[in-house]
Design a binder for these strands. Structure first.
Length: 197
DNA sequence: CATGGGATTGACT
DNA sequence: GTCAATCCCATGC
């Protein structure tokens, strides 16, 4: 993907990232679930303004925002929109494509459906840790590529974001319909409808 | 400087 | 279904 891809509205980027290939080292997977976060709504870390934590979110687009969640897991986001605007797409699940044995070692699991079916799981499986926070997605260690040739764009399920208490009504979660690799809870309604910022 | 709250996961009842 | 683990950092005194 190029810089202009990430410079657009974060909800559009979240939708368009479904199907793209997330790669780090010898591991890669097709993105099947994303969520958008924007500084104007309180579920976004950038809502509090520019701090040490949100520095990367407010920086230029096409960078990785990686933070620790619940003291245990690393969560990976792609920074979007213009520099000075805090917005990012959380990658919530990928379908394993390459390096599956390495993913199994890192996760201590066998079933492919369990390797990357959640934001903390996929970061562990792909070996993404906090040291990659702020790294460039164009030419850096993590990259996101256009969907593979022959990859068929699925119907998208749109619904509320997972695990948040504020701005929970916004339908900013996007899932590839029918994928066995998305996280729980499974989205309920295949409803269209994107609320503008 | 002390405190509290998570964009989660896996184990257990 | 419930619940604890555990780190970073924002906030408030």
């Amino acid at each position: 993907m190029n810089r202009a891809f990430y410079e657009r509205g974060v909800v559009d980027v979240a939708r368009d990232l479904v199907g793209c290939v997330l790669r780090h080292g010898d591991t890669a997977g097709a993105i099947v679930e994303t969520e958008a976060y924007h500084e104007t709504e309180p579920a976004c870390h950038a809502f509090v303004g520019l701090t040490a934590r949100t520095r990367v979110l407010f920086g230029p687009p096409a960078r990785a925002y990686v933070y620790r969640s619940y003291g245990i897991h690393a969560l990976f986001n792609a920074v979007c929109e213009d520099e000075g605007v805090g917005a990012a797409v959380l990658i919530r699940a990928v379908e394993p494509l390459e390096g599956i044995e390495l993913m199994r070692q890192r996760r201590g699991l066998v079933r492919a459906e369990d390797l990357c079916s959640g934001p903390g799981k996929l970061a562990q499986a792909l070996g993404i840790e906090l040291d990659l926070n702020g790294s460039d997605l164009l030419g850096g260690p993590i990259s996101i590529e256009a969907p593979r040739p022959g990859w068929e764009a699925p119907e998208l399920l749109v619904g509320p974001r997972v695990g948040i208490t504020k701005a929970a009504e916004l339908p900013w979660r996007f899932c590839a319909a029918g994928s066995r690799f998305i996280s729980r809870p499974r989205p309920l309604n295949p409803q269209p409808g994107i609320r503008p910022l």
